[in-house]
Design a protein around this nucleic acid. Structure first.
Lengths: 252, 252
DNA sequence: CGTCTGTTTGATAGCGCTCAAAGGGGGTGG
DNA sequence: CCACCCCCTTTGAGCGCTATCAAACAGACG
């Protein structure tokens, strides 16, 4: 049982790029190695894990696994963006998180994945046997502690999302989403307030508990108010971050 | 940084009772001891922690701490029910969880609590110094592993709540809430499908992302449909659990 | 018996969804 | 190179679910 999405901050992570997917050099940026390094764990154990890793590539729209499937493997993202989601029997979908390079995924309960996972862009991942990975983590207290911190961070973010989904207006939700992406972008070393949205409007809606159309309308409102850039709908410049933060927090 | 709410399943936990709050005998049911026992950890470390514990009692409605306060202490619930919640600046509230005996609480980020916590009934808790508790857990890999499992379980529940808040109708939410409480009741050894609601309608609403009135209306609907009992609004009998489950899952 | 708090029920309104159609950009094939 | 198609996005119109406002009701307590 691992986190569905880690929020491991890679030191100054490599820019996300979906081209040039091929055979990777020995994993240098993946979350588990970073864990090992960060935790000052013996490299030997990590090598054991890497020895069992298999690299896989996914095409845009490809499903990695679905909720309820037997959770045999743990994944670490090298490149690309994915999403985890849950569905109701009649097809309504709630996206529980977007996953970026450096994140790990494979949260399970009773040996089964708790969310479905799908590639939003072309992706490159490392795949580890779940049992072996758990064993190695259990043998490394510092690694285990790091994993606990990651899981807690995810829980904190999930609680923030609950506030958003339960109590915020459509405008507040979309503003919060833009602010969140911008902050991520900044944390990854991207200085300008330009953000790239690999997901389409329908995915944003399913993440924010809104319809595609409502997301689009809110984006148009922000554009018409001069808060964000016009032009490319997948590449957005935030002109007034404080104003968007105010909106996101219900202060405007 | 600890979990905001554990879902530690006490073997066949003592019934919840709010009367007779006084000096406790050496903690026998609290989550951390249970962790120690469950993890087959040396009792000595646990004793170290217990030695630093202070028992506190809370009255109904009393606030334990608020979001953003310095997270100096970790708590373990002996008796009573509490809630954790987040608020928007203008007063909207999202309850992120209800806490029961056996649960631990004190999730923090950057040394500050991420949620506010308030007693719903009279409560009795153990209070530990955060640093000491973390140190002891870190020194006990099995205890640490158990804490990781708890945190993961909470994350899984948070994701289920996201689906509820983002994509379910009012009727589905209330049905899901009743089913969830009934399951808890059963897990605690309570065999009949009778559930007790220590929280008022407004709290249920703030947990489900609904207004007080909507919760009330849905409860009335269920009552009029013969799915739940009439009479005491805080003590509910579920007459048709499968039907309620169907509703909760959007199948009806 | 009166007050207070929480719950229920009713009436109305509004936010966001649904249905529908137009607009736009990229890719493919003629 | 252009035409066409397809998918995604945007915009518009109308509706429905749930919030809001309001008042009646019920139980606890003094």
């Amino acid at each position: 049982m691992f986190s569905a999405k880690s929020v491991w901050q890679l030191p100054a992570a490599e820019p996300r790029q979906t081209e040039d997917i091929g055979i990777e050099p020995p994993c240098s940026a993946c979350a588990l190695r970073h864990a090992a390094v960060h935790s000052e764990v013996d490299e030997n154990d990590f090598s054991l894990l890497i020895a069992k890793a298999v690299q896989i590539n996914l095409q845009e729209g490809q499903t990695l696994f679905i909720e309820g499937a037997s959770a045999e493997r743990l994944y670490s993202i090298l490149r690309g963006t994915l999403m985890t989601y849950k569905s109701t029997p009649d097809g309504r979908r709630q996206i529980t998180g977007f996953l970026w390079p450096g994140d790990i995924l494979g949260l399970r309960r009773d040996g089964r994945y708790v969310c479905s996972t799908e590639a939003i862009t072309q992706c490159s991942l490392y795949s580890y046997p779940m049992e072996a990975a758990e064993e190695i983590v259990q043998k490394n207290p510092l690694m285990e502690w790091r994993l606990l911190e990651i899981t807690r961070q995810e829980l904190i973010e999930a609680q923030e999302q609950m506030l958003l989904l339960g109590r915020k207006t459509a405008k507040e939700r979309v503003a919060a989403f833009l602010i969140k992406l911008e902050r991520q972008e900044r944390d990854r070393g991207n200085q300008d307030a330009q953000i790239f949205l690999p997901m389409n409007r329908s995915m944003v809606g399913d993440y924010l508990g809104l319809s595609t159309e409502t997301v689009s309308r809110m984006m148009s409102d922000f554009r018409n108010s001069g808060l964000i850039s016009a032009g490319n709908e997948r590449k957005v410049q935030l002109f007034d971050i404080p104003a968007l933060e105010s909106i996101a927090n219900g202060l405007a």
